[in-house]
Write a protein that binds this DNA or RNA. Sequence first.
RNA 1: GCCGAUGUAGUUCAAUGGUAGAACGGGGGACUCAUAAGCCUCAAAAAAUGGUUCAAUUCCAUUCAUCGGCACCA
Length: 481
Amino acid sequence: MSDNFYITTTLPYVNAPAHMGHALEFVRADIIARYKKLLGYEVFFNTGTDEHGQKIYQKALENKQTPQEFVDFYASKFKELLKLLGISPDINFIRTTDENHIKSAQEFWKVCYNNGYIYKKNYQVKYCIGCELEKTDSDLVEGKCPNHPNGELEIRDEENYFFRFSDFQKPLLSFYEKNSNFVIPDFRFKEIKTFIEGGLLDFSISRLKEKMPWGIEVPGDPEHIMYVWFDALVNYVSAIGWPANMEKFNKWQVSTGGMVQYCGKDNLRQQTAMWQAMLMAAKLPNSKTVVIDGFVTGAGGVKMSKSLGNGIDPVKLLEIYGTDAMRYYVARELHPFEDSPLTTEMFKEAYNANLANGLGNLVSRVMKMSETYNVRIGDDLGSIFWNSKVEDLELFNIKKYCDQIWDVDIKSLDEYIQREKPFSKIKVDKEGAEKDVKYLLTHLRGIAFKLQPILPETSVKILQLIKENKTPVAPLFLRKD
RNA sequence: GCCGAUGUAGUUCAAUGGUAGAACGGGGGACUCAUAAGCCUCAAAAAAUGGUUCAAUUCCAUUCAUCGGCACCA
């Protein structure tokens, strides 16, 4: 095992603006990426946009845009969001319309094909004459089109390429067996195991180009294009140079023991089973860990939706509260693995309680005393702090890590001030008060170090204030009413 | 329908086979370094029914409620 680390988010499918779930995933992956860097790892951090497929094609047509114009717009939107979220600027941003990716996806297909895992067969498409649309089984109600329950469904034969997913039941199960922490959290791991144990069907991985041209051509068969997620999943290896730059690929996917992936719970099967089977089919090493996030819901666990008007736009929240407030909320107030409710009211309360009244206020009161009494501490560096692994972060439990900072570290400093009253002591026992403030400064600096992966901007600000021995000119987090 | 999970103060979450912890919000108090912040303090909770046990919120069963999965939707 080397000192390299590869972490990736799932690529958002860009048929709509970013939602809280995207923000959540970007921030959490970024926290882990920053943590690993602080420990001294060389980190490859990947994200990007998934830009092919039917839905995007349709949306583009509706907007009277070319698909390329449409995805260009959203790709730039997502890049802006990364900036607003304070995501590490050296992040790799891959687009599935990138030339390298297209070549890589085609090569990936060829390798799987040559290894015997892709074959062509007739695929029966159900077509509702009333809707003039193809229907999938999940579209149907009791085998009928819900819009035209009296109309007949036509069965149309179509040639598709299939992936031999069924060959991978045993390999996947034995892979899971050997990697007992492959999926985090546990209950998601169980869920996917149960699914695999239930038996696997091969799945279709191509579409007829004449029906929907927006995708990557199947190598050697220009009548077909790859089904969008077959192409999209390959990004995790195309991003690190496969197959053109095998040195790079080995550095990030082989020497690291595999990539670490973040994804939402709706992506469980794709990331932990299908993609792993695809890697096996291409005879490439598997991922190391897949971390599954819950959803951000509206109040009471109700799904966010336009019709309910309970959706939260992360960009709006960022405009009001700023980068680190959003990162704080994602890191600590949303459950690390389960669904969490979110309302603007909840966000404001958490912000006021923990950032304005909590961290921000503590910085002000400590720095005021330090500045007034002219107390200084040495220039100890964070590298000394980040010299060993942090268990909570190794287990991707970012919330637990943050709880320690707020419930213990920050709280105990507020209590310390109250108990020792250096502001009164200074009048009768200068030395004693100075000692108190030194203690406070040292521990505040410790908090700033701990916050480095979580709230990078704030951490820098606090360290700077300590260094200059200044009270903040403006509160770090202004209270919102 | 099948499978899985959840149901704890007003709200969001913890822990635990033996006095149920916290945070936010609410009431009260003393202080003043601080962003009317912080500290102390008070009120406030285990869906229902049965079972196992000396003892259950915790284990089991049933009921009710909510959520998720049940593959071509990314």
